[in-house]
Design a protein around this nucleic acid. Structure first.
Length: 964
DNA sequence: ATAGGGTTAG
C-alpha cells in the first residue's frame, strides 16, 4: 500500500520533533539494563521498590525504602526538571525533604514516653508539612506521626501534645491524597472515630485529648464526595449530629465550634453535586441552597451564600446526567445568581468558574440539541466578556470550556473554530495555556483529515515554543486517539512512533495510563501478527514506569490488564497461557500494594483459568489450583469481586479430571457441599453441571455419588428442570452409584427411580427420566445387592415405557449383561447365583430377538461364582451345563465360553476327580472347535493336581494346545 | 475545611 501524502507529512513532522527532543541525558545504566531484560517479567522487581515509608516498621525495610528514594531522586535530577513523581511539592526542597524523612523515621526508634520537647515540636511541624504533600505517602506519614505523638501523650498524662488541628490536618491530607475514594473515606472515618472515642474515654486524669470541631466534621463530609458509593445517609447523619451537638452541649464555647457553617453546607451540597447521573441529587443540592438562604436570614447566623455555593449547584446540574434539561437549569440558575448580585448580594458575583461550569453542562446534551447548545454556550461567552468578572485571572477557562463544547458537539471545521477562540481570548488579555493548546490539537486531530493532522502537529510545536516546556502526555494522547481510530496499518505505525517519542521526551510527556490503554486496546483489536507481543511489551513498560520510576500518571487500572488478558485468550501463541497467568499475578501484585483501581474479578480469573485448562500439563494444573485458592481465600475475607463461580469450577474440573480424577471429585464435592448449603443455589449451567457430575461419578465413593444425587434433586426441586436437567445428567447420577457397592446405594437408586415413575404416572410431564444407559447403571446397583427381582421389574417397566413412546428406554442386551455381571462380581456372590443367571437368561431369550454370546458368557460366569454348600454348587454346575448345551445347539459360543465353563467346573467341583473329568470333556470339545484361548490355558494351568503323577501335562492337553 | 478545567476505554 502506498503512503498517502498527508500521512507522509505527519510522519516527517514526527521525525522532526524526534530530532528536537532534548539530547538524552546521562543515565544509561538504568535504561540499558531494563531494556535488555524484557524477557523477564517486571512484576518481580516491583514489590521491593515501591517506597512506603510510613509502613516501614523495622529498620531493614526502612533502609531499602530510603536507598531507593535516594536513587530515585538522583536519577530524576538528570532527566527532566519538571518531573516530580512521588513527592509533588517544590522541587528545590527535595534535599530538605529527604532529611525530614530521615528525621521522622528516626523518631520511631525513640521509645514511647521519651520524646523531648524539641522532638515533639519537630514531629508536629513535619506532620503539617507531610500533610500537604497531596499524595498517599504524605497522608500515611502524617497519620503515623499523629499516632506516635498520641502514644507519647498517653504516657504523659498531664500534657496536651496532640491537638485538634493535627487531627484535622491528617484528615485533610487524605482528602487531597489523590487516593481511591473508598480508601480516603476509610481513613478519614477511622481518624475521626479514633478522635471521638478517645474523647469519650477521657478521664479526669487526662482531659487534654483533642475534641473534634466543625472543621473535623467538614473534612469527613468532604471525604464522602470523593467516593462513588452512596453515602447520603451518612452525610445527612453527620449534619444532624453537628446540629444536635451544637444545641445540646452545655459548653457554650464548644457548641459554637461545632455549629455547622457555610462551609459545612457547601460541602454537603458538593457531595450531592458530585453524584453523577442523578437528577435527584442535583435537585437536593438546590434545595440545600434554599435552606442556606433561609438560615442566612437569621441574626448571628454563620451561614452566608457566596459564589462558591452557587457554583456548586451549577456543577450539580452539569453532573446530573439530565443532558439538555440539566444545562438549561444550570443556565437559569446562573441568571438567578446575576439577579441576586444586582440586588445587592455582593458575594454572589458570577465568576469565570460559574460561566465555564454552565458551558461544560452544554457539552453533555443530547445530539439533537447540538447546534442550540453551541449557540447558547457562545451567548454565555459573549455575556461573560461583556460583564465584569471578579476573577479575571480565570477567564481563559471559559474559552477552553467553549472549545470543548464545539468539539463534543461535532461542529464543522472545529480546528479553525478553536483557533478563532484562541485569537479571541488574546483580545481579553487572556493567554492560552497548555490546556487550550491541547484542546486545539484535539480539535484538529478529531477532524481526521490528513491535512488537519499536520496542523495538529504544528500546534504541538508551537506549544513547545510558547510554553517553554514539553507538552504533557494529554496532548499526545489526543493525537494517539485520533490516529488509532483510523484503523490502518500506517496509522498504527505512526502511533507507535509517537509513543517512542513520548518516552524519549520523558518527564510529563511520557505515556500515561490513557496512552497505554489506547495502544493496548487498539492492538487487541488488530489482527496483525505480533500484536500480542507488542501489547505485552507496552504493559511491561507501563508497569516499569509506575513501579520503578514512580510515574503516578501511569498507575494501571483493571482495564489494561483485562485487555491484555482478553487478547491473549484469543491468541494462538504457545506462550499465551503462561503470560496470561503472569499478567494476572502482576494484577494481584498491584492490588496487594494498595492500587485500588486494579480489581481482578471473577471474569479475569475465569479467563486465565480457562486458558490454562486447555493445555493439561502438571504446571498448568498447579497454576490453576493456586488461582482457585486465591479466589476462595479472597471470598473468605469478605471480598466477593473474584468469588469462584460455576465457570471457574468447570474449567478446573476440565483439567483436573484429565490429570488427577480423584482430586477432581474432591473439588467437585467441596463445591457441591458449599452450594447446597446456600439458598438460593448459586447460578449453575448445563456445562458446569455435567462437569460436576462427571467428576463425582468417577470416584466410586459413596459420598460423591450422594453429592451428585443431592445436587440433581435440589435442582429439580428448584424447577430448573427444563433449563438444566436432562436424561444425560440423570444418567450420570445413576452412573455414580453403579461404582459404589453398598446396600445403601440400592435403596437410594430404587427410591430415586420409583419417585420419578410415580410422578410420571401422576401425569407430571416435565419429569426427567434416564435413558438405557442410566437404567443399566441402576440395574447394576440393584444386582450388586442381590435384588435380581427388582432389577427384572425395572426391565419390565422399561419395556412398558418404551411401548408408551419413551424410545430411549428400550431394553437392550446390555440390561441383562449389567445384571449378570453384577451377579458375578465377588461382592455379591451368593448361593443363588446360578438360579439368578438362569432366570435372567431365560427372560433375555424371551425378550430379545438375538442373544449375544457375551450375554451367555456373563450367565456362565455368574454360575461360576456361586457360593454356598456342595449341593448349591452341584446345582450350579448343572445349570451352567444346561446353558452351555443350549448354546452348543445354536453353535454360538467362543473361546471365552469355554474358558468360563472350565472356570465354573474348577471352582464348583467337589473333588479333583470330578473336576478332571468335566474339564477334560470340555477341553476336547473346545480343541475340536479350535477355540483354545488364553483363558482356557490359564484356567488349566492353575490346577496342579490335574497334571499326571509324573508331573507332566496329559497328552490330550498337550497335543491340542500345541496344535493351536 | 468548601467551587474547575485535558486525553482513553466494551
Amino acid at each position: 500500500m502506498r503512503r498517502s501524502a498527508g500521512l507522509q507529512l505527519v510522519s516527517q513532522e514526527l521525525t522532526r520533533l524526534q530530532c528536537q527532543a532534548r539530547p538524552r541525558p546521562l543515565c544509561p545504566p538504568r535504561n540499558c539494563r531494563l531494556a535488555s531484560s524484557t524477557s523477564s517479567y517486571t512484576s518481580r522487581n516491583i514489590s521491593c521498590i515501591s517506597p512506603s515509608f510510613a509502613g516501614a516498621h523495622h529498620s531493614h525495610h526502612r533502609d531499602i525504602a530510603r536507598s531507593n528514594f535516594k536513587r530515585h531522586v538522583s536519577s530524576r535530577t538528570h532527566t527532566s526538571a519538571s518531573f516530580t513523581p512521588s513527592f509533588p511539592n517544590d522541587h528545590d526542597h527535595t534535599h530538605s525533604l529527604h532529611s525530614n524523612i530521615h528525621y521522622i523515621l528516626s523518631q520511631t526508634k525513640i521509645p514511647v514516653g521519651r520524646m523531648n520537647n524539641i522532638n515533639r515540636q519537630k514531629a508536629r511541624s513535619f506532620l503539617f508539612i507531610t500533610s500537604k504533600w497531596a499524595n498517599e505517602q504524605g497522608a500515611t506519614l502524617s497519620e503515623a506521626l499523629l499516632e506516635r505523638l498520641h502514644q507519647e501523650q498517653e504516657t504523659n498524662h498531664n500534657e496536651a501534645i496532640v491537638d485538634t488541628d493535627m487531627y484535622n490536618a491528617c484528615m485533610h491530607a487524605w482528602n487531597i491524597s489523590g487516593a481511591d475514594g473508598k480508601i480516603i473515606v476509610q481513613n478519614v472515618e477511622s481518624i475521626l472515630t479514633r478522635m471521638e472515642q478517645r474523647c469519650a474515654d477521657d478521664t479526669l486524669h487526662n482531659s487534654h485529648r483533642a475534641r473534634p470541631d466543625r472543621t473535623s466534621y467538614n473534612c469527613l463530609l468532604h471525604s464522602y464526595s470523593k467516593c462513588d458509593e452512596d453515602s447520603s445517609w451518612k452525610v445527612q447523619a453527620v449534619l444532624e449530629k453537628m446540629n444536635a451537638m451544637a444545641q445540646e452541649s452545655k459548653d457554650r464555647e464548644y457548641a459554637s465550634k461545632v455549629q455547622p457553617d457555610e462551609i459545612t453546607y457547601n460541602t454537603v451540597m458538593n457531595y450531592y453535586a458530585t453524584r453523577t447521573k442523578s437528577k435527584f441529587a442535583a435537585q437536593h443540592a438546590e434545595d440545600i441552597l434554599l435552606q442556606m438562604s433561609e438560615l442566612s436570614q437569621h441574626t448571628n447566623s454563620n451561614v452566608r451564600i457566596t459564589s462558591t455555593s452557587f457554583n456548586i449547584v451549577l456543577k450539580a446540574w452539569s453532573n446530573s446526567g439530565c443532558g439538555w434539561e440539566g444545562a438549561e437549569r444550570a443556565k437559569s440558575l446562573l441568571h438567578k445568581m446575576i439577579q441576586w448580585h444586582n440586588h445587592g448580594h455582593a458575594n454572589v458575583a458570577p465568576t469565570a468558574v460559574s460561566f465555564s461550569t454552565v458551558m461544560d453542562a452544554y457539552t453533555k446534551v443530547e445530539r439533537v440539541h447540538a447546534s442550540t447548545a453551541v449557540e447558547n454556550a457562545m451567548e454565555l461567552l459573549d455575556w461573560m466578556e461583556a460583564s465584569s468578572i471578579s476573577d479575571p485571572e480565570h477567564v481563559h477557562s471559559c474559552y477552553n470550556a467553549m472549545a470543548k463544547v464545539c468539539i463534543r458537539m461535532g461542529v464543522e471545521n472545529v480546528g479553525e473554530r478553536v483557533m478563532e477562540l484562541m485569537r479571541r481570548m488574546k483580545n481579553m488579555d487572556a493567554v492560552p495555556d497548555e490546556r487550550m493548546y491541547t484542546r486545539c490539537i484535539e480539535a484538529y486531530a478529531r477532524e481526521g483529515s490528513e491535512g488537519a493532522f499536520a496542523v495538529a502537529f504544528g500546534v504541538l510545536d508551537e506549544m513547545r515554543e510558547h510554553l517553554q516546556c514539553n507538552p504533557s502526555s494529554v496532548a499526545f494522547n489526543s493525537l494517539l486517539d485520533a490516529l488509532l481510530k483510523k484503523q490502518t496499518d500506517q496509522s498504527m505505525e505512526l502511533a507507535e512512533k509517537l509513543m517512542k517519542k513520548m518516552e524519549s521526551l520523558g518527564g510529563d510527556s511520557r505515556p500515561d495510563i490513557a496512552s497505554y490503554n489506547m495502544m493496548i486496546s487498539a492492538l487487541s483489536r488488530s489482527s496483525c501478527k505480533g500484536s500480542e507481543q507488542k501489547a505485552v511489551d507496552y504493559l511491561r513498560s507501563m508497569l516499569r514506569s509506575f513501579n520503578n520510576d514512580h510515574y503516578s500518571k501511569a498507575k494501571p487500572t483493571s482495564f489494561v490488564f483485562n485487555s491484555v488478558i482478553a487478547m491473549l485468550d484469543r491468541s494462538s501463541e504457545e506462550w499465551a497461557d503462561d503470560v496470561m497467568y503472569k499478567t494476572l499475578m502482576s494484577m494481584e501484585n498491584q492490588q496487594r500494594q494498595g492500587n485500588a483501581s486494579v480489581i481482578p474479578d471473577t471474569i479475569t480469573y475465569n479467563t486465565v483459568i480457562g486458558k490454562l485448562s486447555k493445555r493439561p500439563t502438571k504446571e498448568n494444573a498447579k497454576k490453576v489450583m493456586k488461582l482457585l485458592t486465591q479466589m476462595e481465600s479472597k471470598e473468605e475475607d469478605g471480598n466477593f469481586d473474584a468469588s469462584p463461580d460455576i465457570i471457574t469450577y468447570t474449567n478446573i474440573l476440565k483439567i483436573q479430571s484429565k490429570l488427577d480424577p480423584n482430586r477432581a471429585s474432591d473439588i467437585a464435592s467441596r463445591y457441591v457441599t458449599r452450594s447446597l448449603a446456600r439458598s438460593p443455589l448459586p447460578p449453575m449451567d448445563r456445562v458446569g453441571l455435567r462437569a460436576l457430575l462427571m467428576a463425582l461419578s468417577r470416584s466410586g465413593k459413596f459420598e460423591n455419588a450422594f453429592d451428585a444425587i443431592s445436587l440433581w434433586e435440589r435442582l429439580e426441586g428448584c424447577g430448573k428442570t427444563t433449563k438444566l436437567l436432562d436424561s444425560d445428567t440423570c444418567n450420570l447420577v445413576l452412573l455414580a452409584f453403579s461404582k459404589v457397592k453398598t446396600e445403601q446405594s440400592a435403596d437410594i437408586v430404587l427410591s430415586f427411580l420409583t419417585e420419578r415413575l410415580k410422578r410420571l404416572s401422576n401425569g407430571d410431564k416435565s419429569i426427567v427420566l434416564p435413558t438405557v444407559v442410566g437404567m443399566n447403571a441402576a440395574l447394576t446397583v440393584l444386582s450388586n445387592s442381590g435384588r435380581i427381582n427388582d432389577a427384572l421389574s425395572i426391565v419390565e417397566i422399561m419395556k412398558a415405557l418404551y411401548m408408551n413412546g419413551h424410545s430411549k428406554l428400550q431394553p437392550d442386551p446390555g440390561c441383562y449383561t449389567s445384571i449378570l455381571t453384577s451377579v458375578a462380581s465377588v461382592q455379591s456372590s451368593s448361593k443363588n447365583n446360578a438360579l439368578y443367571a438362569e432366570k435372567v437368561l431365560k427372560k433375555a431369550k424371551e425378550e430379545l430377538e438375538v442373544v449375544p454370546i457375551t450375554l451367555v458368557n456373563a450367565a456362565i460366569n455368574a454360575c461360576a461364582w456361586t457360593s454356598g454348600d456342595q449341593n448349591d454348587k452341584k446345582r450350579a454346575i448343572q445349570i451352567a451345563f444346561e446353558i452351555f448345551d443350549q448354546t452348543k445347539e445354536r453353535s454360538s459360543y467362543d473361546a471365552v465360553t469355554f474358558g468360563l465353563m472350565i472356570k465354573a467346573c474348577m471352582k464348583l467341583s467337589s473333588d479333583d476327580d470330578t473336576r478332571f473329568k468335566l474339564v477334560q470333556r470340555l477341553f476336547q470339545v473346545c480343541a475340536k472347535n479350535g477355540l483354545v484361548g488364553n483363558m482356557v490355558m490359564r484356567e488349566i494351568g492353575h490346577f496342579k493336581p490335574m497334571l499326571l503323577p509324573d508331573g507332566k501335562v496329559p497328552q490330550a492337553w498337550k497335543i491340542h494346545a500345541n496344535d493351536k
